[in-house]
Design a protein around this nucleic acid. Sequence first.
DNA 1: TCTGGGGTCCTAGGACCC
DNA 2: TCTGGGGTCCTAGGACCC
Length: 439
Amino acid sequence: MLHLDLDAFFAAVEQRDKPSLRGKPVVVGGVGGRGVVSTASYEARVYGVRSAMSTREARARCPHAAFLSGRFHAYRDTSQRVMALLRDASPLVEPLSLDEAFVDLEQADLPDLTVPTVTAFAERLRAGVVEVTGGLTASVGVGTSKFVAKIASDLDKPDGLVVVAPGAELELLRPMDVRVIPGVGPATAERLRRVGIHTVADLETVSEDEMVRLLGKASGHWLFQLARAQDDRPVVPEREAKSVSVEGTYDTDLTDRRLMEGLLTRQASDVAGRLRKHGLSGRTVTIKVRLHDFTTLSRSTTLVSPTDSAATIARLARALLVDLDTSGGVRLLGVGVSGLADWVQEDLFGETGQEDEDEVLPAVEVPHHSRRAWAPGMDVVHAEHGRGWVWGSGRGVVTVRFETAESPAGPVRSFRDDDPELSPWQPPEPAGAEEEGVL
DNA sequence: TCTGGGGTCCTAGGACCC
DNA sequence: TCTGGGGTCCTAGGACCC
């Protein structure tokens, strides 16, 4: 297995494209008041600038660095060249991000997998990266598993190569801090530290039961394996997306609910656009709200069938916000869709492809249907309170959320599902296409 | 005015069904 | 009136990765 990692990728692309930045500290990341560092060039790292550090702190540490917000099309373009190079070398390539990938060497066209052979192969790949990227360097690790290859690629950065010979894995790992293990972050490391586990060697002395008690089922079993360098995960070239989301942190905390609703509406529209672009739709809509004190809340709701409609996602997102107390101020808002399907729901509301975000659904009274299957999020109804939409149903009760002029996600009322006051809104056409109870 | 944005995976509790 | 399990789906939160 081979793991390749492009060195200080975003910053390196900037230095490649702007010669004046070469040899100088470059920081790519959020440049706003609440930005964080995405990548620091090695020149900036000398001053202690690190990924995930606030840009404010990075500026304090290295005021003369160039602070850039990033050009993602350039990064994507460069990444694609590297991935194409890797796929030339082996059909089994698994990109982990724009700057990282695993390559299955068993599928590469190599005479054998001895250390000298894979070393020469890896050096050719590294030279290839410099060539196709116009001068970027990569660090590469090779080992008998993903785990070992990934750790190896980290050992001689930047522009390095480490090949771990079969059988040498544990000797290499044992003295290392548990934090080197992918999946062991600050919280897990702290839990382990409290019971006196600092190194992989320490970890190896813990029984599997003990590990599960300490870290839970999945992590416990997994870490027990990794402590023994046991990892047979295959290279998975294509993964299906499981969610699509958009979020934003604002320079000053939000307090205006109408503004929050407007921002969620915009984000919903962005999410819907990305869903459509990839031919996806999803059933679960989630909002994320980070309060002024960094408390992070999420609220979600699941539709009967998947949607890619900006109006539907926006409506649900705004309604999910209603129950949250945001009076202390909100620093982040986000909208996501999960439960993805690779098909799109028949256009229930007769909406056209280019729906209007602030579209007002036509009010059409239709005869009352008793014992109808009310579909949360999908059924729009009329009652004396105005137009509303079904928020939940079951046990003969339908909950309706009404849209009012003051609030797009207004008051909630419950009805018996045969309440004559409820009349479902239905698309004006097509005639004869009525599907009673089926949504 | 510490603390981004886009993701994945796991856990735990409750509803619901058989 | 008291008392089963197992499985699945949903929601909320949290850890983690790049």
